[in-house]
Structures are given as C-alpha cells and as structure tokens.
Amino acid sequence: MLTISRELVDAIVAHAREDHPDEACGVVAGPEGSDRPERFVRMENAERSPTFYRFDSHEQFRVWRDMDDRDEVPVVIYHSHTATEAYPSRTDVSYASEPDAHYVLVSTASEEQQFRSYRILDGVVTEEDVKIVEAYG
C-alpha cells in the first residue's frame, strides 16, 4: 500500500494537468527505508510527448545525487497518461527498474481523477491501495 499526503497527491495531479496533453513525470523522495514520500521533485519530460516520457539524463543524475546526499530514495516515481487510463503500459513495465518504488500513474484523459499506484517487479505489475492522509502520523 502507498500512504501519501494529500498535499503531494494534489501537487502530482496539478503537474499532470499543467503539462497536459504531454505526459508529466517526476519523483517523490523519502528517507531510505521509510517508505514515506516527502520531497516532491517535478522532472522535465525530455520527450515532451503525449505518449512517451523520459527523464532528462542530466537532470536525473543531479536529482539522484541529491537523494544520495540526503540518504533518500525515490519512494514514488510518477507519470501521467493523457489519453488512456492510469494503468502501466508495456513500455512502462519494460523500463521499470526501481524495485522499491511505488509507480504512480495519473490519467488526465477525463475529468474524473485517476490516481493509482503499482509495484512493478521483474515484469509483473501489482496494483496496490492508495491511502491519502492529511499528515503523516
């Protein structure tokens, strides 16, 4: 299960809506071993595409180094689908390579908000519950 604050959910959804119709992407870092998303980092979609996203390799290097310096890990890796539902595509699965991350998908295809979370490990997708909290206890 992903437990995440409402503030972070709102930030991710706002980013997805802002970049629509292109896909938006980013991470939420948290302390290593905590499984608690805390620090919102929006990333450039280097592809600027409605059907594909890729972190810019230089930006990713800086962000990953910052996380390393702070003893953080990417607790959440998010991106949006802008014309389809919030379910991982085959491309998403083939690239997924952070075994401990929650892969969050937001769909901006309709007005109804879709915010869903998955574990993707060795090509196997498992949807998980999302618990939105006002603050971490």
Binding site: E23, F55, T82, P88, S89, E98
Partner: peptide
C-alpha cells in the same frame, strides 16, 4: 536505470 515509459 533510465526512467522512461508512456502510454504506448
């Protein structure tokens, strides 16, 4: 690992 994906 490269972080990428998308709807297709």
């Amino acid at each position: 690992p490269a972080v990428a994906g998308g709807a297709r």
